[in-house]
Amino acid sequence: MHEQPILCVRNLNKQFGGGCQDCRETSTRKLERNYCSTCGTVYACQDISLELFPGEILGIVGESGSGKSTMMQCLYFDEPVTSGDAYIHDVELEGQNVFNLSSQKKRYIRNHKYGMVYQNPVKGLKMNFSTMGNIAEKQIAAGNRNVTTMERTGSELLENVHIPLFRAKEEPRNFSGGMQQRVQIAKALSNNPPILFLDEVTTGLDLSVQANVLDLIKRIQRESGISMIVVSHDLAVIRMLADRTIVMLNGAIIEQGLTDQIMEDPQHAYTQRLVYSLL
């Protein structure tokens, strides 16, 4: 089966710090977890390669500090990468390493190809703008200028994520955590992106609210066929959402496979520990 991935990442590396002679060479470096004990350089992402296929949800699990969020921030251009390539399968961007593009081009990709939902809504929303204004902001960035259509799509999106329309003029800071998260999802979807990144979207939400958000994500995937990368430290979330799963530890991918295979036949010692700790 020859299938073209919609997003293909090759050897993504991200380090914080300049490195020293003890750790610069990949093959010989000895790290304490993910940092060099001599110079303190943190190797947050080491040679991450992955492929995201059209319409699929790819799960990424790993403990805190394993580099999941850093990887997402690199993919979304919040953080520059140290090295690595990423290719988006798209007529305009075919064959171009998107990490090397100009900041203008990157902004274009963020506005037209990507959606991002952060763990912390403060990062994804302007808390002192109205809810509708937040959604409009992303639509304007994507080139929309017609207020009527923007308002119509905005209302549809909010209805879709179960935010009552009479609160659309309210600022998200008045909302509960679950509502803020749902506004973020509506905002991320407002430019109709083919690729959506979800970073620990249900962390810190209570169970029933978490269920709402998860149902929403599943529904979006079913109805619009958006490809998603879902990062979570919660295996139950990944089990429910993802077909394929990548396990990260200390900045590197240690295992990947079908989600049920990762859960029932984990190969790596860390993955086994992770799965056995599942309640």
């Binding site: 089966m1 299938e3 296929f53 077909d243 394929r244 990947q256 496979g257 079908l258």
Partner: peptide, 17 residues
């Protein structure tokens, strides 16, 4: 779809299919 295929070696995407 794929003809004779070794399930022990297929890719994840093929298995999902």
């Amino acid at each position: 779809r794929f003809g004779k295929i070794d399930l022990a070696k297929v890719t994840e995407r093929e298995m999902l299919y």
